[in-house]
């Protein structure tokens, strides 16, 4: 397959993730959409590695790092969500507007 296909796939996945982030009310759902965006980025990296610099493994290493960071970020995010849930008894982000004017 050609590079362009993979890139298009990544683009579509990214947009879906973006839609999810912007739209969903559940905090955990937002985090999951964020994971989708991360994965789209990873697909891009691996695809470039395969088609542009096959001998060099830089893209794959980069993708591994991204996965690890995403994992760390998910951990922290979820702990925050749990904390919010403890206080608000719900995780509807639309209701969490303390910083409102």
């Amino acid at each position: 397959m050609q590079l362009m296909h993979y890139l298009s796939l990544a683009a579509i996945l990214f947009s879906i993730g973006f839609f999810g982030v912007v739209t969903r009310r559940n905090a955990i759902a937002i985090l999951m959409s964020l994971e989708l965006m991360f994965n789209a980025v990873n697909i891009n990296l691996i695809a470039f590695n395969r088609y542009v610099t096959p001998g060099d493994l830089l893209g794959q290493i980069f993708a591994i790092f991204v996965i690890v960071i995403a994992a760390a970020e998910a951990v922290v995010g979820l702990s925050i969500v749990i904390l919010i849930y403890r206080h608000w008894r719900g995780i509807d982000v639309d209701r969490i507007n303390l910083m409102k004017w």
Binding site: Y6, A63, I67
Partner: peptide
């Protein structure tokens, strides 16, 4: 997505994806 990785000759990353993600 792990399957896609395998198609792109990045098996290790695919495994890491499954394990971690």
């Amino acid at each position: 997505i792990a399957g896609i990785y395998v198609m792109l000759f990045a098996e290790f990353v695919a495994v890491v994806q499954v394990l971690l993600y």
